[in-house]
Write a protein that binds this DNA or RNA. Structure first.
Length: 383
DNA sequence: CCCTTCACG
DNA sequence: ACGTACGTGAAGGGT
């Protein structure tokens, strides 16, 4: 974690430079970390158009500032400042303080009874939200290193939630995509844009990816339109076409909502229940929340079931066959191991095999696929 | 202590 | 007309 001290100094200098630029653009110095003070500068002093309100005032969140960036130079600078400030306070400054003096390592707590869907959660520190994007994010990951002679192995499930969607819905087209090892987002794009694969652009594939995410989250035309920056009408068209082409998915969503309403809870493939009282609410907004939870919980929760089954199987076999290889973290769809260098190849094979086998153990009708990465730090090891 | 924001899957 | 994509945890501001 010594690397983080140096990074902290660098970020401090960078943040100070940005603070001056921002004060110049704003015409005054103010606390950039205060949404309230920022709102005064943006919406009263500079007279920019507010996008939407929060409970306490005008929003200055990322989405808002991105839109305001077309009117003025300040919002983009604020966004830059915010992202660096976040990394510095939450990770670069905080993590070294939490290193255990006895072991010289970070030890998280994994909570099994917090997340309503059955996922684990991680606290003090949360090691499930360590940055993974951007120059500084990657440098934070580089600070997570192995002892000499050891390596990290990262193993993550590829597209686990869409695979579960295919299994739960038994949609013939989705099942075929995964059985044949096709690209789910390309296949979705082909369907919703009604074009051959050769004519699908990167933009179209990206939009299709958002549609799949949207389905898993309990989609609305508004949410999708916001996410991919098209009109609500266009977003609605994508969704309608998706359901036209993947009819069993709509049937699954309807069934999850109806059953949740009737029983008061939803269920995962291992029988874990999530109560959803909102489904019985008279308030349409609350009911909407409930319906999205009813769609998402069986999917997110079944993914949690699968990785937990895999963790038990992997840990059993490691103890018996490669006792020096340790499972050190779970991040929802990925497992991270520390292993002596001479065991890397055996450990990789064992981990991949057991993680992929947990799908068939639970009777999944689609294959699971695990990607592997190896390295001496967390950045290198990330697949 | 609540609110807002933002890091991850 | 209104609010509107799922699940978390941590930091900082402000009351």
């Amino acid at each position: 974690m010594g690397a983080l001290q140096a990074l902290g100094k660098e970020l401090e200098r960078e943040l100070n430079r940005m603070m001056e630029t921002i004060a110049g653009l704003a015409g005054e110095a103010f606390n950039i970390n205060s949404p309230k003070q920022l709102a005064v500068v943006l919406f009263e002093k500079l007279k920019l158009k507010p996008i939407r309100k929060t409970k306490t005032g005008y929003s200055t969140d990322e989405d808002t500032l991105t839109q305001l960036a077309t009117q003025h130079d300040l919002p983009a600078q604020i966004l830059n400042y915010r992202s660096l400030s976040k990394l510095k306070s939450t990770y670069v400054d905080a993590l070294p303080e939490l290193v255990n003096p006895e072991t010289g390592r970070l030890h998280t707590s994994l909570n099994q009874t917090v997340a309503a869907t059955g996922r684990l959660s991680s606290t003090e520190p949360n090691l499930q939200n360590i940055p993974v994007k951007g120059e500084y994010g990657l440098r934070i990951r580089e600070a997570f290193i192995t002892p000499p002679g050891h390596a990290l192995i990262c193993a993550d499930y590829s597209q686990i939630e869409p695979r579960i969607l295919a299994h739960l819905s038994q949609d013939p087209k989705l099942l075929k995509v995964f059985e044949q090892g096709e690209d789910i987002h390309m296949a979705t794009a082909v369907e919703i844009f009604k074009l051959p694969a050769g004519q699908i652009t990167r933009e179209m594939r990206r939009a299709a990816k958002s549609v799949v995410f949207g389905i898993v989250y309990g989609i609305s035309p508004f949410g999708l339109s916001q996410n991919i920056g098209v009109s609500q009408a266009e977003a609605k068209q994508y969704i309608d076409t998706f359901f036209e082409r993947f009819g069993s998915v709509r049937a699954l969503m309807d069934q999850n909502i109806a059953e949740g309403k009737q029983k008061g809870f939803t269920t995962t493939i291992l029988g874990r229940r999530r109560p959803i009282p909102e489904l019985q609410s008279a308030d349409p907004t609350q009911r909407g929340f409930g319906e999205r939870m009813a769609v998402n919980s069986p999917i997110q929760g079944s993914a949690a079931d699968i990785i937990k089954v895999a963790m038990i199987a992997v840990s059993r076999r490691l103890q018996a066959e490669l006792p020096s290889t340790k499972m050190i973290l779970q991040v929802h769809d990925e497992l991270i191991f520390e292993t002596p260098e001479h065991d890397v190849e055996k450990a990789e094979r064992l981990v991949k095999a057991e993680m992929e086998a947990s799908g068939s153990r639970l009777g999944l009708s689609v294959p699971l696929k695990v990607d592997l990465g190896v390295g001496s730090n967390w950045r290198e090891a990330h697949p």
